[in-house]
Design a protein around this nucleic acid. Sequence first.
DNA 1: CTTGACCTTCGACCAGGTCGAAGGTCTACG
DNA 2: CGTAGACCTTCGACCTGGTCGAAGGTCAAG
Lengths: 132, 132
Amino acid sequence: MRIGQAAELAGLEPSAIRFYERRGVVPAPERTSGGYRTYRSDHVELLKLVRRLRSLRLPLDDVAEIVELQVKGEPPCTAVRAAIAREQAAIEQRIRDLHRLREELGRLEAAAERLSDDWPRTCLCHVLEAPA
Amino acid sequence: MRIGQAAELAGLEPSAIRFYERRGVVPAPERTSGGYRTYRSDHVELLKLVRRLRSLRLPLDDVAEIVELQVKGEPPCTAVRAAIAREQAAIEQRIRDLHRLREELGRLEAAAERLSDDWPRTCLCHVLEAPA
DNA sequence: CTTGACCTTCGACCAGGTCGAAGGTCTACG
DNA sequence: CGTAGACCTTCGACCTGGTCGAAGGTCAAG
């Protein structure tokens, strides 16, 4: 099977698969005499794994480590759980940041509502005078 | 005033200021005969504005538009409010995505807890079998 | 005049890919 | 056999928002 079909089965773009290969995330497949990459079903399973892990937003380095374990036949459970725990922590942090930002934008929006008609020329200063 | 002091006053890195200038976000300042950028207080105010808008995570293109209005002496209120509204919408979306992701990671973590000791060799499949 | 702090430009690098150009391969059909 | 067209190859640039380092220039104080 060539890269297009493998991509379709795995739910990835061919360009992404080549990129993963270049970055050492997945092993390089064999080639035809003409230079075409040829994938087998076990390779497609690896690509599906990559897609699944990326859909969890795990960094490529973590994905590479997990795929490597999988290729070696070792259970990657521990690595998967560690990566997921790291990602969870990062997400909690990002959610907190975004909530704070959402509140700030809400306050600015409300302030702009009140000010824009009254002092159109000074609105910016008033709206943005909040703590930098 | 040279770039280092302007950067300090505005709370930015000199490299960031040069970057903003290259990207047309802020106007290019005058130079000394030796080629050093020289900033005046109104320029520093623009840089502070950029920093404030970037602290709200507004995209550089939006910041550039707002700064341009400010330089022309026009009140950028409308542009500021539009940019903030766009950013708010994006943030709502991101928060929703992250909440969903957090839930999914929590489920995986719980599943891994239950499985990792019992079926270490098949843990990965079970943990990741959820919908891709 | 030298020292040292500061500045200049240029180019590479980060994540995580995407897109396009120029060219090669493979398959099916006539 | 030839060729059309779908697919593939590599390479390099581009995206966002900057940061960092190298090689070299400038400027004030001592």
